[in-house]
């Protein structure tokens, strides 16, 4: 007889899936540079964590102007986060002399591991770290017998 999956089995599978997707994302990110001359943007380091009530996205954005943070929903499970910097940064500023270019903003695409209400996002910037709290969309409930 097939054993019924416990809530812990479901949670474990969910965590493994999340880890797998994060690994895929990391690999994808590494294959391209962390800057884009066309949009004059730098890709910030970001992190995604999931709590029972929300998805918390943080991004390291030194020199960020908190007033300029924008979140755009690109798909059900993808948002784009952008923000302007208070200063313009060149490759030379970053210690690279054999390339020309100037950067003035941050931009990154963040995959969302679970459904969220993007319109209800709360944003704060502290110590140059952007924190976006996205409430999870409630669609189902698992009854524990």
């Amino acid at each position: 007889m097939r054993r019924r999956r416990s809530i812990f089995d479901i949670m474990w599978e969910y965590m493994e899936e999340l880890e797998r997707r994060t690994d895929e994302l990391m690999r994808e990110v590494f294959e391209k540079p962390s800057w884009d001359l066309e949009t004059r943007s730098l890709e910030p380091l970001f992190n995604i964590s999931v709590t029972p009530d929300e998805v918390v996205v943080t991004a390291d954005m030194p020199y960020v102007d908190p007033e300029t943070v924008e979140i755009e929903k690109l798909d059900e499970d993808l948002i784009e986060v952008s923000a302007k910097m208070r200063v313009k940064v060149t490759f030379r500023d970053l210690g690279v002399r054999h390339r020309e270019g100037e950067f003035s903003c941050f931009r990154c695409r963040v995959p969302l591991p679970v459904p969220v209400e993007v319109g209800k996002a709360k944003i704060r910037v502290r110590r140059g770290i952007l924190e976006i709290r996205l409430p999870r969309r409630r669609g189902y409930r698992i009854e524990v017998e």
């Binding site: 990391m26 990110v29 590494f30 962390s34 730098l42 910030p44 380091l45 390291d60 030194p62 020199y63 940064v89 500023d93 970053l94 210690g95 140059g128």
Partner: peptide, 18 residues
């Protein structure tokens, strides 16, 4: 120089994370 350092160290931090 905290902000400058954070910006310069992004790529090494990315690799370190993996």
């Amino acid at each position: 120089k905290g902000e400058e350092i954070r910006l310069k160290m992004r790529d090494i931090m990315r690799r370190t994370r993996t």
